[in-house]
Lab assay of single mutants.
Amino acid sequence: MASQGTKRSYEQMETDGERQNATEIRASVGKMIGGIGRFYIQMCTELKLSDYEGRLIQNSLTIERMVLSAFDERRNKYLEEHPSAGKDPKKTGGPIYRRVNGKWMRELILYDKEEIRRIWRQANNGDDATAGLTHMMIWHSNLNDATYQRTRALVRTGMDPRMCSLMQGSTLPRRSGAAGAAVKGVGTMVMELVRMIKRGINDRNFWRGENGRKTRIAYERMCNILKGKFQTAAQKAMMDQVRESRNPGNAEFEDLTFLARSALILRGSVAHKSCLPACVYGPAVASGYDFEREGYSLVGIDPFRLLQNSQVYSLIRPNENPAHKSQLVWMACHSAAFEDLRVLSFIKGTKVLPRGKLSTRGVQIASNENMETMESSTLELRSRYWAIRTRSGGNTNQQRASAGQISIQPTFSVQRNLPFDRTTIMAAFNGNTEGRTSDMRTEIIRMMESARPEDVSFQGRGVFELSDEKAASPIVPSFDMSNEGSYFFGDNAEEYDN
């Protein structure tokens, strides 16, 4: 783990906690998980779902989305002020799938948001429990990260689609708070800032007046979040320049895209947490497990152990491969979309394939898809080993990566060399080191050039047997250095459309 220093740990961010010791953190995270579980059980009762239907990941996603929508204050306010045809701002819903006479049927349900809020609060001892809501947002974000390569979004903001390893959390809503900021990748933060800068260039009043003052505060806050992700002084200094700019424009845009590229080699610290679907927490609570009393951590053995003992089902389209669908969801559960496939294969105990080789589309089923041909199958979400999630980018030494994705962002704290394609990355730096950030740029390029592919990161860190909950005997895996390590390699994943 990167030293926490003055930073709060993510469990504290996750639970809005002030400084807590490890036991208190485990208890408050457990409380959050228990609340999600209780809410899910109650919703299944309301909807009269069978046990099997309640364990269907598509039903879980609909129920999670309903509660997130019920608590989305800004959108609710907007919907009330701008009524649109056929949208009731006070209601929320989605597809629920039921097994009827041996076939899967889709039923569109509609609930009062007020009623959903009441059920959620009741499951969370009367609190709004925003930490639990954020947790579900991060699960949705991790699922998107594993399912889609955001080529269009990258290109629109002047970045290269091969930089997708920097895009963790790119679909997280803005209201996801400190826990959300911690899991956002460098590219995601750059993209958010670039969008602001572009608006400022096109709209003279963007930075002016009372609204402009708020915009400015948001801009500086985002700059500080991004600065905190960088691990070298030169990158941090460049972020200070971007933040202090009187009138952010093209120079800042250039600096930010430069920094994003540099992060492929001088990786930023991005938190990883295993956020599971509500249909995993519900049955665990129903079986009598007391998360608050037992304590829970999002970055240790607990999620692995929970998945070892969970039964989750998914709808499967006619030509999809259930094992591939399982891999997709497994990666999402562990926030591992940008991790090295060699490491993932070792931990999972079966070969993890790149996205383009998977015969599976996303987990969600569109409303126009034919239910007649839908089957369902068990998702295999178990693992051979477990490993500690990392909050750091690993040290800054790398190795060759593949054509589709030119770097990785480690999820697990496991000893290995970190793949990246130096030639491709360095070719993108057209040696432009003039301007006010020239000395920093020169320094950053120097550090990137001296990074050695064969150097090892996370020295001495290994994986653990599932029986080793105290992480007492690390097993340090050895990897084939020459092997392909990137998930979005030469990829044809669908595009994420909101």
Rank of each mutant, 00 (worst) to 15 (best):
S3Q: 00
G5S: 13
K7G: 00
D16A: 03
S28L: 13
K31C: 05
G34Y: 05
G34C: 14
I36R: 01
I41D: 10
M43Q: 03
M43G: 01
S50M: 11
D51P: 15
Q58T: 01
Q58K: 09
Q58P: 07
I63L: 14
E64L: 04
R65M: 09
A70N: 03
F71H: 08
D72H: 14
R74L: 06
K77H: 06
K77I: 08
K77N: 12
E80G: 14
E81S: 09
K87Q: 09
K87V: 06
K90T: 15
T92D: 05
T92K: 02
R98S: 13
V100Q: 06
V100F: 09
V100D: 01
W104G: 09
M105L: 08
M105F: 03
I109Y: 03
L110T: 05
D112T: 10
I116Y: 01
R117F: 00
R118H: 09
R118T: 14
I119M: 13
R121Q: 03
Q122C: 15
A123I: 05
G126R: 12
D127K: 13
A129I: 05
T134E: 06
T134H: 00
T134L: 06
T134G: 00
M137T: 11
I138E: 06
L143V: 14
D145I: 04
D145S: 06
A146F: 11
T147Q: 15
T151W: 04
L154W: 13
P161I: 07
R162Y: 02
M163P: 00
L166A: 13
G169E: 06
S170W: 05
S170K: 10
R175K: 15
R175Q: 07
S176T: 15
A179D: 03
A179M: 06
G185H: 05
M189N: 07
V190T: 00
M191R: 07
I197W: 05
R199S: 12
R204Y: 01
N205K: 15
R208W: 13
R213V: 00
K214I: 08
T215Y: 07
Y219P: 01
G228D: 07
A233F: 01
Q241L: 08
V242A: 04
E244T: 08
E252T: 10
F253T: 06
T257P: 02
F258Q: 03
F258N: 03
L259R: 04
A263R: 01
I265K: 10
A271P: 01
S274I: 00
C275Y: 07
A278H: 07
V280A: 12
A286E: 11
D290T: 14
F291R: 01
E292N: 11
L298T: 06
I301L: 14
L307A: 15
Q308S: 09
V312A: 10
I316T: 14
P322Y: 02
Q327F: 12
M331C: 04
A336R: 00
E339I: 03
R342E: 06
L344N: 05
S345E: 08
S359N: 14
Q364N: 14
I365V: 15
A366V: 09
A366M: 07
N370A: 03
E372N: 12
M374T: 14
M374I: 15
E375L: 14
S383M: 04
R384T: 09
I388W: 09
I388N: 04
T390V: 05
S392I: 07
R400A: 14
R400V: 05
R400L: 07
S402K: 03
S407K: 02
P410L: 09
Q415L: 06
P419K: 00
T424F: 06
M426L: 15
A427I: 11
A428E: 10
A428N: 03
F429I: 07
N430E: 14
T433I: 10
M440D: 04
R441L: 00
R441F: 04
I445C: 14
E449C: 08
P453K: 08
E465V: 14
L466P: 09
A471Q: 02
P474V: 03
V476I: 03
P477V: 14
M481E: 07
G485I: 07
S486F: 11
G490C: 06
N492K: 14
